[in-house]
Amino acid sequence: MRNVKISPSILSADLGNLAGDLEKISNADFIHIDVMDGHFTPNLTFGPEVVRVAKRVSNVPLDVHMMVSNPEESIDWYADAGADLITVHYEAATHLHRIVSRLHDKGVQAGVVLNPATPVCLLESIIDDLDMVLLMSVNPGFGGQKYIEATYAKLRELTALCKRHGVDPMIEVDGGVGMGNIEQIVAAGANVLVAGSAVFGSQDPAQAVFDLREAGTRGIAKQNA
């Protein structure tokens, strides 16, 4: 089991002081950047310039989540802007293997995202090629939503799929993650946790990152018990 990693989402950051907020989470493992196009999701967020700025002001690796239609048309923008890892939605990617190969050719880690209603079994033919699988534990589009409890069963199913294939991609969960459930989420199989309001909504974001990681680490012990 890999160490637990925390990926604070800048969807909950103060965009008027992005550099300052990123400095507050310099102890994070990733910076999570949600890219929404107003089509695949009902919200519209960050272009590649935000990735470029984050890369310039922070040394924390950039975890770019592409919630867009036709991701093959725009992944190069974000890879070239400095993304370290890019995840695309299974539901939006017509040529998934091509996208993953393209990202790897550019030296970027590649992952696939599943919406809450998308079954894990659809990853059977791509799992061997992935650096990360991201399970959405809310329906994508907005921060601050409640965690969907069925995600626990999907995590266990995904862990079993990886074991059958003999692979060990990072397993990320995004949506409704906080101190009240992170231990249980890790115990079910996750090792990268996206947290927005739980980090940037706290008085001390760096301490929140530390506390979430510590709570997640307790979940590893439960998984191995």
Rank of each mutant, 00 (worst) to 15 (best):
Pro140Phe: 02
Glu91Thr: 06
Lys146Thr: 14
Leu85Arg: 06
Val113Ser: 11
Ala93Pro: 02
Leu135Tyr: 01
Phe142Trp: 14
Val120Met: 06
Tyr90Lys: 15
Asp128Gly: 04
Ile86Phe: 01
His104Gly: 06
Gln109Arg: 15
Asp131Gly: 04
Ile99Ala: 06
Glu149Pro: 06
Thr87Phe: 00
Asn139His: 15
His104Leu: 05
Ile86Val: 10
Leu130Gln: 03
Asn139Glu: 15
Val108Met: 03
Ala93Thr: 15
Asp84Pro: 02
Asp105Val: 07
Ile99Pro: 08
Thr87Pro: 02
Ala92Cys: 15
Thr87Asp: 07
Gly107Thr: 10
Lys163Tyr: 06
Met132Asn: 12
Ala153Cys: 06
Arg164Tyr: 06
Val120Asn: 04
Asp131Arg: 04
Ala92Thr: 15
His95Asn: 14
His95Asp: 09
Ile86His: 00
Pro140Glu: 04
Tyr90Trp: 14
His104Asn: 09
Asp84Phe: 00
Ile99Thr: 08
Thr94Asn: 07
Leu135Met: 08
Pro116Glu: 02
Leu134Lys: 01
Tyr152Gln: 05
Val100Ser: 04
Val112His: 01
Cys121Thr: 12
Val138Cys: 05
Leu158Tyr: 05
Leu130Pro: 03
Asp84Cys: 02
Lys163His: 13
Leu130Phe: 02
Tyr147His: 13
Ala92Arg: 12
Ala153Asn: 10
Ile99Gly: 04
Leu96Ala: 03
His95Gly: 01
Arg156Gln: 14
Asp84His: 05
Ile148Phe: 05
Ala93Val: 08
Ala117Gln: 13
Ile126Val: 15
Ile126Met: 09
Ala153Met: 12
Val133Pro: 00
Ile86Ala: 04
Ile127Pro: 08
Arg102His: 09
Tyr152Arg: 09
Leu161Tyr: 00
Asp84Asn: 11
Gly144Asn: 07
Asp105Phe: 05
Ala150Cys: 03
Met132Pro: 03
Thr151Cys: 11
Glu157Phe: 00
Val113Asp: 04
Leu161Ala: 12
Leu122Gly: 00
Leu158Phe: 08
Ala92Pro: 11
Ser101Val: 06
Glu149Val: 10
Ile99Val: 15
Gln145Met: 11
Pro116Phe: 00
Cys162Thr: 13
Cys121Tyr: 10
Ala117Gly: 08
Leu123Gly: 05
His97Tyr: 10
Tyr90Arg: 14
Lys146Val: 13
Val112Ser: 10
Gly144Gln: 11
Leu135His: 00
Gly141Cys: 08
Lys146Phe: 00
Pro119Thr: 06
Asp129Gly: 00
Tyr90Ala: 15
Gly144Glu: 11
Arg164Ser: 14
Thr151His: 03
Ile99Cys: 06
Val138Arg: 02
Leu130Trp: 04
Gly144Leu: 11
His97Thr: 13
Arg98Glu: 15
Asn115Cys: 12
Thr118Val: 11
Glu91Lys: 11
Ala160Trp: 05
Lys163Met: 13
Leu122Phe: 02
Ala92Ile: 14
Leu161Asp: 05
Ala150Ile: 10
Val133Ser: 01
Asp105Gly: 07
Val133Asn: 01
Leu122Thr: 10
Asp128Ile: 07
Ile99Met: 11
Val108Ile: 14
Gln145Lys: 13
Arg98Ser: 14
Ala93His: 01
Gln109Met: 14
Ser125Asp: 15
